[in-house]
Computed example of a mutant assay.
Amino acid sequence: MKAPLSLLSSLLGAVLALAPVSSAWACATCACGDPTLMSMGTEQPFSGRLRFSSTLRGWGHTVGQDNVDALRLREARMDVAVAYAPLPWLFLSATLPLQAREVRSVSLARERGWGVGDVELTAKAFLYQDRAFSADHLFSVLVGVKLPTAPKLRLEDGTLMDLDTQLGSGSVDPLAGIAYQHFRGSWSFLASATGFLPTRGILGYRAGASVRTTMAAQYQPAERWALRLGLDGRIEAASDIDGEKEENGGGVIGYASPDVLFSPRMDLVVAAGVRVPFFNRLRGRVAPTPIAMLSVAYDL
């Protein structure tokens, strides 16, 4: 029996030696050399990386004065995204939102809308990393565009629903940003800024130009879970309709963003958290709610 077993072992070794090797077949941690659990959009690159994700958010705000002209908006949103790295330094991604929205006025009149929102396409290029494998420092730039893929929602008589009920802006909105990431043992850090320059869209509406920022620190004491704390900010100009500025909106708002990340199995990352508004300097009367978030990301 010894000779057949030896021959079988030799043949098996030869097959494995001749088999094609692709980093895309390996686990994501093995391929990029870093075991840090990362949510969608913050992962380390390697050629052939393919990642799918789904993110659920629940949020809302109230605009205007209570018992006078208050308008309450509530939305549940699921973003379905895919990201692919055709090159070790380039990530291409697409995000499709599915939304359900309700708007209620002070008179208790309601409008509801649901369906597909505006698709966002981005390309992220890593311009610098201190080493190709298990990098400690990453610097990247981002360019993209939001496309008017959401349908125009109408009432039964064919008239368009209010702007607040619409799921998309009806505009083509370019965006660009920069990001820096640092990995140091059980800790990782992120700083990013992304600018948006909306164009005019549905019903003459144009959202104000804005910059969104993130500063976050993450501690990962074990292989399967991590804690993340971020500060998210938004600076935006006032929106307008046919050149007339809206009274409510525009200004500065900041959120405290604690998250828990968990990996129940290889290449699967689940994140849950909340975005709590702690600094509100928006013009007029805008009262945002906390934003609840749950996401799942999987590498193939």
Rank of each mutant, 00 (worst) to 15 (best):
T42M: 07
G115F: 02
F189N: 04
L12K: 12
W225S: 04
F279A: 15
A271S: 15
S295D: 07
K2D: 13
Q220N: 05
S134L: 00
L153D: 06
T214N: 14
D79Q: 03
P277S: 11
L127P: 03
Q99L: 14
R184M: 14
L7A: 11
G273A: 07
L138P: 00
G250R: 01
T289A: 15
V296G: 07
R184C: 08
G208S: 05
P148Q: 03
F183P: 04
I291E: 14
A256W: 09
G243R: 07
I235C: 12
D232M: 11
D259E: 15
D242R: 14
N67S: 14
T165C: 09
A83S: 15
T36S: 15
L229F: 14
G177I: 01
T214D: 13
S22C: 08
T199R: 10
D79L: 05
G185D: 08
L142V: 10
R212E: 13
P86W: 00
V141A: 14
L87S: 06
G13W: 03
D66A: 15
L153V: 09
A217Y: 02
A125D: 01
H61P: 00
S171K: 04
G144S: 03
F91M: 11
S192C: 02
M38S: 13
A238F: 00
Q129H: 13
F183K: 01
D130K: 01
H137R: 12
D232I: 09
G158L: 06
A24S: 15
Q166F: 00
G64H: 05
L294H: 04
L227V: 15
P264K: 07
G177W: 01
L153H: 08
V296T: 11
P258C: 08
L300N: 05
R206Y: 04
C27R: 11
